[in-house]
Amino acid sequence: MAIDLTGKIALVTGSNAGIGRAVAIALAAHGAKVGINCLSNTAQGEEVVETIRAAGGEAVLVQADVTDIAQIDRLLSEVEAAFGGTVDILVNNAGHLVQRVPNAEMTEDMYTRIMDVNFKSTVFMCKRVLPGMAAKGSGRIVNMTSVAAHNGGGPGSSIYAASKGAVMAYAKGLAKETAGSGITVNNVSPGFIGNTMFHATFTTDTARQATINGIPLQREGTPEDVAGAVLYLASDLASYLTGETIEVNGGMMMR
């Protein structure tokens, strides 16, 4: 069965680079009209839009901070206005480790920043799209969690790991709430994914090689590897899958 998202409106948060960029391009390549979102780097966001349009797709860029509820509403309203309808596919990709901080040094401000970008953003993005999806009797929500939700993450990332664990559990509860409305809610859980700012910022070359050596497939993942899983969950191929998490980690963590 071919994946055909023609006529669907998708929104991918944090899609100016890395995994979000790959997800947006994949959705557009299969027919979706895609809302691109960035926090600040609009030049990167415009590059994604132009890449999609050059391939014959439709895309629009909206700068917004998805930790701010008013900006979430504006983001959705602008995407809806641009494409003339409500969102069919939401990918909550925006997230960040923010900073490696041991618990003994954790501040309330840092705790809030980490939880807001990873968990609050997911909750309130979902809340905003649910009425439109329910009115249509269908919708696909894909949240981005992490292998850290299973193993607690690396040094100084326990709150990040907890925020991703919260995302994973939240999808199960939301999946139950929305199943009667034809909406599915699932997670994608990336492992060690290269070509992203996350590891460029927080992972040393030595740690990177050590991690790769422990991955059964003997390579780091790519943003496109993650995009493939998201594309599946956004399509009719996954119509009987909800409340689940797909692990994309090359075998480094098997359940």
Rank of each mutant, 00 (worst) to 15 (best):
A229I: 01
D205M: 07
A207M: 11
T196N: 04
N195I: 01
T222K: 15
T201C: 03
G221E: 05
V230A: 13
Q218T: 10
R208Y: 13
D225V: 00
T203Y: 04
Y232F: 15
D205K: 10
A200F: 05
A229T: 02
T201S: 08
I193K: 10
T206I: 12
A210T: 09
V226E: 13
E220A: 05
A200K: 14
T196A: 04
E224L: 02
L217C: 13
E224R: 12
I215M: 08
Q209E: 15
A234F: 00
G194E: 15
T206H: 02
E224N: 08
T204W: 05
A210W: 00
L231R: 07
G221D: 04
I212Q: 05
R219Q: 14
A200N: 14
P190H: 03
T206D: 14
T222H: 11
T203E: 15
P216G: 13
A207Q: 08
I212D: 06
A207I: 10
H199F: 12
F198Y: 08
Q209R: 11
T211I: 15
Q218R: 15
L217D: 11
V226K: 06
S235L: 07
I193S: 03
Q218W: 01
S189A: 12
T203A: 02
G214E: 11
D225Q: 05
T222D: 08
G228N: 13
Q209Y: 06
T201Y: 05
P223V: 06
A229C: 07
H199A: 03
T206R: 05
R219M: 14
S235T: 06
L231F: 01
P190T: 03
L233D: 15
F192E: 02
S189R: 00
I215N: 10
A210L: 11
Q218I: 01
A227D: 11
G191H: 01
